[in-house]
Design a protein around this nucleic acid. Sequence first.
DNA 1: GTCATTGGAGAGTGGCACTATCCAATCATG
DNA 2: CATGATTGGATAGTGCCACTCTCCAATGAC
Lengths: 215, 215
Amino acid sequence: MRLAELSRRSGVSPATIKYYLREGLLPAGARVSATQAEYDEEHLRRLRLVRALVQVGRVPVATARRVLAAVDDESAGQFDRLGEVVTALPHGPAPDDDDHATARARETADEVQRRLGWRAVPGNPAHQALVAALAALVRLGYPASVEDVMPYGRVAADIAEHELAVIDEFEASTTQLEAAVALTVLYEPVLLNLRRLAQANEAGRVFRIDAEAGD
Amino acid sequence: MRLAELSRRSGVSPATIKYYLREGLLPAGARVSATQAEYDEEHLRRLRLVRALVQVGRVPVATARRVLAAVDDESAGQFDRLGEVVTALPHGPAPDDDDHATARARETADEVQRRLGWRAVPGNPAHQALVAALAALVRLGYPASVEDVMPYGRVAADIAEHELAVIDEFEASTTQLEAAVALTVLYEPVLLNLRRLAQANEAGRVFRIDAEAGD
DNA sequence: GTCATTGGAGAGTGGCACTATCCAATCATG
DNA sequence: CATGATTGGATAGTGCCACTCTCCAATGAC
């Protein structure tokens, strides 16, 4: 199919598809002549994945390129590619200054991971972002002790175990990696928005009861 | 204290503090003369909250203004203010087109909420964002059935119940609302990054065993 | 043969979170 | 009281990012 049809079938504007081609998010089509290229179903699928990552998963375009390159890199082993993928995916900001709050947050993060039996990797961007978030809570005086964080850690462990089981069912290593990326990135907003809905629901219960009791 | 000292104590540049004052994220200081203003500890605390929301929570500045205005609005009741806060907080994008995938996603979202005993509010931005994320999964052919999503819903319900209990322990309604905002926004990266760490840990177990077994 | 279409390249746009520059009023100091 | 530094407010500018617009030569369809 031509670029115009790829655009029509995906709902992505031709200009944006050209942009993705330029940025290396989408492999070039098979050049059928000097001014025409042919795209197939695989291009359509990849384009949909890119759109999902960028729009729903809020992955920056430059990051998506790195992630997809790691997924496609047949030369490296599966475990190394997965490592590249998870470190390339966007995380929060790393802690900017090493104050008291950051130090306490780091201790908390380490202890939580120890209790869950995880190997703590201090350089891991997810670890850094976790410390930064906990440090912000500490700075504001909100609860962020090991006991406060542990419930989230247990929940995360449950979810991850379930997700890896799902990923492991895919056959080829490239489809496994693509599934890992898609499920990691796209179930993120699912989880967050379900949490928001649960909070709204729970808040309705708690505060309405309070209000009925006379505030 | 003067703006310069507020800057020193918070680590935020004077130019950025001025920007926040202009944008209404930070109330003006007490004007002590035509060219001088006095800031107190409350300003410092608010500034730290703003920084945490904007930097760690990735809340857009315009959104933070709405959220903080609702927290401060003494004229409205607590429940209404909380409603304004949760709808103002950033969510993912709403579904852009109403195709087959979106329709299926909507059904799934409704059924999950029904099973969890939540009142489904279709106009809720969190609901919209949930549908958009599920639609993206459906479009890519990844598992997004009611059974796939329910574990996340149960986890969200557990977390929310725990969080509301924490919030309910704060005394004044303004501090409760501020706590609701801070905990909702700042525990989000905590949860997400713990999930990433759990995934990395679980992936290490699964794929290393696979590799040892001969790939 | 003619004219609309295609794909590639480069520059331009709009939004956002700052950031740099001015400026007049004021404060501390001698 | 003179004077130079500081302060806070206003305005314009910067850098980044995800597109989007415009142009163009080569081509394909009729």
